[in-house]
Design a protein around this nucleic acid. Structure first.
Lengths: 238, 238
DNA sequence: CCGGGTCGGATTGTCGACATTATTGGGGAT
DNA sequence: ATCCCCAATAATGTCGACAATCCGACCCGG
């Protein structure tokens, strides 16, 4: 039996242990898009990606299908795939949907949060306070999603969690616009503290209300940023 | 030029005009699953589906990837795909998420509904009244989704519309349980009328509140049905 | 009787080749 | 010079074959 175990270990070690189907290619490509390493509306040529990711064209194709279903790329018949460009109006719609889901998640998080969840939330929150005190705006911006993700995890609702995650990745390109309004970070911090205390108190109603106020604020900021934009962001026809 | 036009028309007419990529297979398979023609947890063998749908294995595979991303099938590495079995708890979670989204959609529908939207809604509603008067419960059940779909369309929010559609298809197996509570149809009809009048009045707050009450009712019924179930539905290990 | 090992069928995962299709650039007619 | 048509090219869509893997049946020693 020792021999078979060794053989299994050997075969599973590298051939394609972590890379089931085209999942590795999918993850890498997705990461590349959300990280902004591909421009919106940029063509995604299967052969290029195949070399770039070191995966077969089949895997790349599967990844593209996934990302299409997820809304991060668009595919036209016989014309290939492009990074999907979400308009500002679409981004607003998406954020509205996300807000609706996060309200639900905040409520469920308040109902189900464990002591561990609360500890982690508190930890992120003190980090946020420190960043704010130090005037570290970008550090704060990076902590922000972590805070929300912890709430999603605390809600123990994988369905809503998945959806809100994909929505976030779609509208990610516009997130920076919400932070450059003066005094926004301070109010944001305060709102997060309100959400946190509602969760600590296990008060679903208060948690939902606090999250609603918070995201209504964010939405308002986004509407303001979009409304005051002189011209739409133009992409260069490569 | 006449010749080229004819040639184009000829080539586009049948070869694969409507069946871009594996979309035809995807649609048929999806329809088959949601219609209940495949049992939950049933294995979906690619070769079988290939013959059954008259599509290549490539198309079937793409369809399965899509459905996996959509949450209707599960795929395990080297073990193939199965119709995903959603547990009752999952169905509850899904319905909660759906409720959150439908609240948003009702609000937006009230804000944006056109005269045409309202006319169609009214039409469905009178049909529902007639079915209720005639004691036609199944006719009522079939009209129900149409009513909601019209609201999704009136909201003009494709993002939320898509999401709520996929969620509905996931929890579809449990929908029948909400209707067999005595007196439910009458209350349901009343709730639908409340939603309708709020939309007619273009009152987003009222529309959201009416939809919230309606779906809270539905959720309560579902919780009741699930809670009073003696044993979980057992599927036969084929 | 039973547990472990082995063999075979069945099914999936991957790759390459080929047909099909959009696009681009050039050439010719007006 | 301009416009239209057409060939060359690049990319996608599809298919078949092969390797890898899993599952179940069978066999055999204890």
């Amino acid at each position: 039996m020792a021999r078979t175990d060794l053989r299994r270990a050997a075969t599973r070690k590298r051939p394609r242990a972590a890379s089931e189907d085209g999942l590795e290619a999918y993850r890498r490509l997705r990461e590349g898009i959300t990280a902004g390493r591909f421009q919106p509306n940029e063509r995604l040529v299967e052969a290029n990606l195949s070399k770039m990711l070191g995966a077969g064209r089949t895997a790349v194709r599967a990844a593209l299908v996934r990302l299409d279903q997820e809304g991060l790329v668009t595919r036209e018949h016989n014309r290939g795939a492009r990074v999907r460009l979400v308009s500002e109006q679409e981004a607003l719609q998406i954020e509205e949907v996300r807000a609706a889901l996060e309200r639900l998640l905040a409520r469920q998080a308040a109902a189900k949060a464990t002591a561990g969840d609360i500890r982690e939330l508190r930890h992120v929150l003190v980090d946020m306070r420190r960043c704010f005190s130090n005037g570290d705006a970008i550090g704060y911006s990076e902590l922000n999603p972590r805070f929300h993700q912890l709430i999603w995890a605390a809600a123990r609702n994988p369905t809503a969690g998945r959806l809100v995650g994909t929505l976030k990745s779609q509208s990610l390109r516009y997130q920076y616009q919400t932070m450059l309004r003066p005094g926004r970070t301070e109010r944001s911090l305060h709102e997060h503290e309100l959400i946190f205390s509602a969760i600590v108190a296990h008060d679903p109603e208060a948690a939902e209300a606090a999250m609603r106020d918070h995201l209504e604020e964010v939405l308002e900021t986004l509407r303001w940023a979009i409304g005051h934009k002189s011209r739409p962001p133009h992409w260069l026809p490569d």
